[in-house]
Design a protein around this nucleic acid. Sequence first.
DNA 1: GCTTTTGTTTATCACTTCTTCAATTAAGGC
DNA 2: GCCTTAATTGAAGAAGTGATAAACAAAAGC
Lengths: 248, 248
Amino acid sequence: MADPTRARRLRPQDRERQIVQGAIAFFAEVGLDGHTRELARRLGITQPLLYRYFPSKEDLIERIYQEVYLRRWKPEWEAVIADRGLPCIERFRRFESDYQRVIHDYAWLRIFVSAGMKGYDLPRRYLGMVRERVFAPLLAEMRREYALPAPDALPLGEGEFELLFGIHGALVYVGLRGLVYGLALPEDPVATRAALLDSALVGLRQAHCAVVRRALEAASPGGGPPLGSPETEQEETHAARRPSGPHP
Amino acid sequence: MADPTRARRLRPQDRERQIVQGAIAFFAEVGLDGHTRELARRLGITQPLLYRYFPSKEDLIERIYQEVYLRRWKPEWEAVIADRGLPCIERFRRFESDYQRVIHDYAWLRIFVSAGMKGYDLPRRYLGMVRERVFAPLLAEMRREYALPAPDALPLGEGEFELLFGIHGALVYVGLRGLVYGLALPEDPVATRAALLDSALVGLRQAHCAVVRRALEAASPGGGPPLGSPETEQEETHAARRPSGPHP
DNA sequence: GCTTTTGTTTATCACTTCTTCAATTAAGGC
DNA sequence: GCCTTAATTGAAGAAGTGATAAACAAAAGC
């Protein structure tokens, strides 16, 4: 016994977990095109055994999605956004701090990217969730906190989402550089992201007000009093000054 | 004649270009694991013909690297960083404006990501180039402009690079979301990035000074006068405001 | 016209892909 | 101990992989 060439007989539940965990690590490393034979080899089992537990490779991948993405989504992320005991900036900071710690993960990032490359809609759906469940409510709260029109008066604009996605992207990029592009990771990624977040959040309120103000002016030119209590914002002058980009 | 099932006979030079361009589009779409047979089919030629022009799939991919990445690198990017006629913030803005326009490209981004996933060192080398040829000189210039110690007195720190990579990443992420993750692209990505850049650049000087100050304190605790002339900071940043277009 | 040159294809090799199914072997209940 | 149950494997199928070599066919030179 203890035939090293033969897999130990496991309870299905254990074997399944072993396969799922192994598959996560494997597909993260080689991408979702990874071959089931190689996966089986790494698990120390034969390839047909995989098909005993998952009817097809695609089913196994679907299971990975649930394990890595859906199961790791925390409802508290949505809760902290709604917490009016905190300024919006602070809510955003807390969300990103924890969210980024969750996704700063070899498997999370690489399978996400691989799925994107293969045209699977996981990344689209997942980021749609971030947008709708976190960013949209947060922008509504920011509108409120900054005395800007509510979303039902002036719908949330692309530019507002881009502000949040911009900060978000800067943080994600820390992990991408290390875990996808193969550069050296910062010594302390958490601290690196915290510093980035700090310096990005400083200008967020002002930028948000400026974006909304522009949207308002576009909607009804020349009307209304200044918004977002500009007199308390010292840097207001330049963000709004530049007449947008190369064009519309 | 005009047998639609048979490839028109081309001059080798033309055929090669056709193959390279087709391969770029093809591998961008399906990733570098794409199959040579499918590539040939899309080109309307037979698969062995590919091997007449490129000894192996890997050689073809190497050629793609040169075409998509090395050939599109602009020496002027390094030049603008050195241009002391402009404030550093403005140099950075111009670099990123143009650089991002170049890499905001289906093939550029997707092949880059695919290469990263497959563990090829193109992304590592390429971003190393950005770091050494653009970010390092820029940080040195920023040190000078902000009256901070020169890099030979205090070596450039990880945290300083992270500031630039943070802004860089926020801009790259605009393209990633659309071209890799499959979300809708912003209506005007150039304008979106310009707005992001504006709001990110506002705090850059201050953040840079803070990072360097911390590094200094870590090196020799308790010493020296405050740095970065904080009292003159605010006005100076945008004094030389963006004169016209993305570059000379 | 014919021959030479060379761009292109047909046919094929050795190997790998995902998947299936009957045979094998280990564990649990009696 | 034996018997039942089910976890695991061996063997194989149909299709697809990168790569090769010889055959074909369209231009170019004379």
